[in-house]
Nucleic acid binder design. Structure first.
Length: 422
RNA sequence: GGUGAGGUGGCUGAGUGGUCGAAAGCAGCGCUUUGCUAAAGCGCCGUACCCCAAAAGGGUACCGAGGGUUCGAAUCCCUCCCUCACCGCCA
């Protein structure tokens, strides 16, 4: 969430930055300023009353211990107590309103973020590799059916549409990719592997900004106030919530494999063919916690770490930067990695690498000591490294041969156990 | 799920209604002493917010969380969360 002091001191700057998102959030700044001013006025008055009560109560204690009369003092304090109760209610109401508004307000896009309305304005940052030359390539659904890599009809019988059941070589390829990616990130890129819970508390979902605004996209548990994590970002970024980290232990670098659960409410019929958009999918996620000074450098290297997977697999991809209108709620800067899908003749998003600056950290109260011993909010970053179903789809489409088999990249051999499917 | 014991500052740990934001010790920082190391002595050493143009300074809140009792709560009562032990159940 945004720093109320920044809003107070530079409201025009905040308004201008928010306006680049095009979501109309800048309109709430005046309301926020009004509530903030009211809150501070009431808080000051409340503190004066508390000080008076504190002093008088001590006087009463002193008088009583000397056996003196104190009833008129007690009456006065009782009166003050009533005033305090009233003011207290007002200030905490204002405090709650302020917090609610701040939680609904997205992060400020970085000042250098490309300005644009939607995805069509996202600039391509770089391209790696070339499109494979395939004549009349099959798409991943046809390949999946042909080689019995997954069974969508039976998955629907179990859980409805939008679920995958990988089968045979498909299940093995899925597992091989997970293991391969975890090994690269832990052994070559220096991330510490976590295997976190998949169910998380409401506070964690607020911390990483899935809540309160996007609750309808989440799977919640009846009677438990817990949620199925929509991404490992939630448990991993919240791992150090409410902690004060030492500067020398930063950056923290974590990698985690988890399944991800998303209702995808409202997206029925959109990109829903095959395994491209589903309610449950596997993902390997990268998370970093850094200082404000190093976060943008760490953002570049995190993105490079995710790209490395596609390079090792020999898959053609491009990196785009999200423009202000397409940027995620909590992000200040995001690169998306898009892998080439020969079957669909399109690029598929397989990773989104974001710098949240201190936006999530402020919600989670995640801080670190700086050189002066002061507590400062960390910067948090994350990126998929990578998301499985789309990677899987691109991989089998790109690997298909004229003989009708699917070539598996050499580097997966130790994990998959074979170089070919079919 | 049941019963019992607990949750106090970076750590250990005292504190059962007032002068307690909290003893003491450890760790940390500064100074003094010292041939180095070590030791000793003295001082400093929580967080958030509010007031103040700012600094200096002042103030309020916080002893797991939230309510309640009281003139006054770390301390008494209630609910919840968490930890530990035992029982039940169980991969």
């Amino acid at each position: 969430m945004l720093d109320i002091r920044l809003i107070r001191e530079k409201p025009d700057f905040v308004r201008e930055r928010l306006a680049t998102r095009g979501g109309g959030d800048e309109k709430h700044i005046d309301e926020l300023l009004r509530i903030d001013a009211l809150r501070r006025k009431d808080e000051t008055a409340l503190q004066a009353l508390n000080a008076e009560r504190k002093k008088l109560s001590k006087d009463i204690g002193g008088r009583r211990s000397r056996g003196e009369e104190s009833s008129e003092l007690e009456d006065r304090v009782r009166q003050i107590g009533d005033d305090i109760a009233l003011l207290n209610e007002q200030t905490s109401a204002a405090d709650g309103q302020q917090r609610d508004l701040l939680l609904q307000m997205p992060n400020l896009p970085h000042v250098h973020a490309p300005v644009g309305r939607d995805a069509s304005a996202n600039p391509v940052v770089r391209v790696w590799g070339d499109k494979p030359e395939l004549s009349n390539p099959l798409d991943h659904v046809a390949l999946g059916v042909k080689h019995k890599l997954f069974d969508l009809e039976r998955a629907a019988k179990l859980s409805g549409s939008g679920f995958i059941c990988f089968t045979g070589a498909g299940a093995r390829l899925e597992r091989a990719l997970i293991q391969f990616m975890l090994d690269v990130h832990t052994r070559e890129h220096g991330y510490l592997e976590l295997s976190p819970p998949f169910l998380v508390r409401r506070d964690c979902m607020i911390g990483t900004t899935q809540l309160p605004k996007f609750e309808s996209d989440m799977y919640g548990l009846e009677g438990n106030d817990m949620f199925l994590a929509p991404t490992a970002e939630v448990p991993v970024t919240n791992f150090h919530r409410e902690e004060v980290l030492r500067a020398e232990e930063l950056p923290k670098k974590y990698v985690a494999y988890t399944p991800c659960f998303r209702r995808e409410a409202g997206s029925a019929g959109r990109e829903t063919r095959g395994i491209i958009r589903v309610h449950q999918f596997d993902k390997v996620e990268l998370v970093k916690m850094t200082t404000s000074e190093s976060s943008y450098g760490e953002h570049e290297s995190l993105t490079a770490d995710a790209e490395r997977i596609l390079q090792l697999l020999g898959l053609h991809y491009r990196v785009i930067e999200l423009c202000t209108g397409d940027l995620g709620f909590g992000s200040a800067k995001t690169y998306d990695l898009e892998v080439w899908s020969p079957g669909q003749n399109a690029f598929l998003e397989v990773s989104s690498c974001s710098n949240f600056e201190d936006y999530q950290a402020r919600r989670m109260n995640l801080r670190h000591k700086d050189a002066d011993g002061k507590n400062r909010f960390c910067h948090t970053l994350n990126g998929s490294g990578l998301a499985l179903p789309r990677l899987f789809a691109a991989l089998i489409e790109a690997g298909q041969t004229v003989e009708g088999t699917i070539r598996v990249p050499e580097i997966l051999r130790p994990y998959f156990g074979a170089v070919e499917i079919g």
